[in-house]
Amino acid sequence: MNPQELLNQLKERFGEENIQEARVENKRLFFKVPYEKAHEVALFLKENGFDMPITMGGTDFPKKNVIEIFYGIWSSVHDFVVMMKFDISREEPKFKTFIEIWPGVHNFERETWELLGVEVEGHPRLKLLLLPDDWSFEEEGYPLRKDFNPSRYKRPWGDEE
């Protein structure tokens, strides 16, 4: 199977309207699904040999008022990468975990939870991973959100000016 064939299969199975912004490259397939369909598509991908998560994260879009979550899954059978993306609301950012489908996303989802402030429902261990233990989300915010301003943190050795 190559990316184009997978895309055709996906469109056939889930309908043209659900597979949006699809783009085929050399060994890559990018597409976007509505959040409601994401777990179904993920299960379909897993059944078709996309078994190894290689990246996962999110992008904050304050203008569009969404957070885009992406999952990059490599297939040990077909040897190419699928990037599945879906949008969640920025006001109430949450989605259901994909750990049952791909166990390897455990730490990636944990990281997305703390850095982007996305509630991952059903995740077994939502505990600070990269941020300091005394990090307060209320005061300091979520570092990878676009409204987070890193320049308010002083350098430990003093400012350059």
Binding site: I54, G57, T59, G104, N107
Partner: peptide
Amino acid sequence: PYRVKISPASFRNFF
């Protein structure tokens, strides 16, 4: 870049 997501090997291997 608007967003860079780095997925390093050690992050995966620690899991």
